[in-house]
Amino acid sequence: MRRRLAVPLILLVLGASLAAALYFAVRLGLDRRDNALIASITAGHDLATDPADPAALLFARLHFLATRDRLDEAQPLVQQIAAAGDRSVAVAAFYDLANARLRAAIAHLEANRIDPAIPLVRLAKEGYRRALTLDPGFWDAKYNLDIAMRLVRDFPQLDTEGEEIPPEAAKRLWTDLPGVPKGLP
């Protein structure tokens, strides 16, 4: 009886392994194509992405936009990457976008434009928090969040639900800025 079963069993194994080979071949092809797109975006080509694309490709696009100060276009990509479910890519996406916002805020502050800087710092802090929620051991996010925290401190009454920034927050900003006004006349 066992010997009779052998041929159908072999056919089953053959079919299953052929199906697996086909699956892996298709996946390998798709991954290779996406890697070519990632390389192209990293090289500086302005290629649009689709929400259904894999997280790594969306992240390459986000990095491209964030490093070119196109923050408004980058924001929806973060949500798409977070929804894709790849934790390490989601952490990197929150972190890179927060970095871009913090860099923009510091540039505003160095030019003495305080008002546009504050919301950027607050959004950057939120991004770092989201990254740390997903990965509590992410030291670069801790460090940059610490920088953002000293630019605009958290206030107990502010972070409960308040959307409006009390005027003293803006006034206190400079007292919390330990190193920025370098060499003002």
Binding site: A56, H63, D96, N99, N144
Partner: peptide, 9 residues
């Protein structure tokens, strides 16, 4: 700031 995370293939 600490540097960005670069996109990886």
């Amino acid at each position: 700031l600490r540097p960005d995370i670069e996109p990886r293939p």
